[in-house]
């Protein structure tokens, strides 16, 4: 499978999707002008990954900021991951800065919207 490796910018996150090395990571800032367009290749990659799953999948979110338009797309990604959970050992790791209650709460809300185990980590 192809590897997605996007450098982060001031308004888009760093993204690594690498099946071979078991790396699934979205980090940094997500406030693109058109979030649906930005995340479309990510959703397509996951749709493809669904047909050739690793035995375990640990998906990491380490976001500093995201806008509300991105939050809708993050839920779309989580819903895709939820569809895979019977065929791979799926965990979501949600990182937040230790004094960032809003990011902690955002992770908790996402965890209530999908049925995937979440692990919360501070940095």
């Amino acid at each position: 499978m192809e590897v997605i490796n996007l450098e982060g910018t001031e308004d888009t996150p760093k993204i690594i999707l690498d099946k071979k090395n078991g790396m699934f990571e979205i980090s940094g800032r997500s406030l693109p002008e058109d979030s649906a367009e930005f995340y479309q290749p990510i959703l397509e990659w996951l749709e493809n990954y669904k047909t050739q799953l690793n035995p375990t999948t640990k998906f990491q979110f380490k976001l500093e900021y995201f806008n509300t338009a991105s939050s809708k797309l993050i839920l779309d990604i989580l819903s895709k991951l939820e569809e895979m959970k019977d065929s791979t050992k799926m965990t979501v790791q949600w990182f937040y800065h230790e004094d960032d209650e809003d990011m902690q709460e955002a992770g908790e809300e996402f965890s209530e919207l999908v049925e995937i185990p979440f692990e919360f980590e501070t940095y």
Binding site: E33, S35, A36, T68, A69, S71, K72, L75, E112, L113
Partner: peptide
């Protein structure tokens, strides 16, 4: 919180690309 979760789960993107969540957020 309940309103936010309801919009994010059930609302669809507007033609202008907004999720309808801005004011609540």
């Amino acid at each position: 919180k309940a309103l936010y979760k309801d919009i994010i789960k059930n609302g669809s993107m507007s033609a202008k690309g907004g999720a309808g969540l801005g004011l609540v957020d």
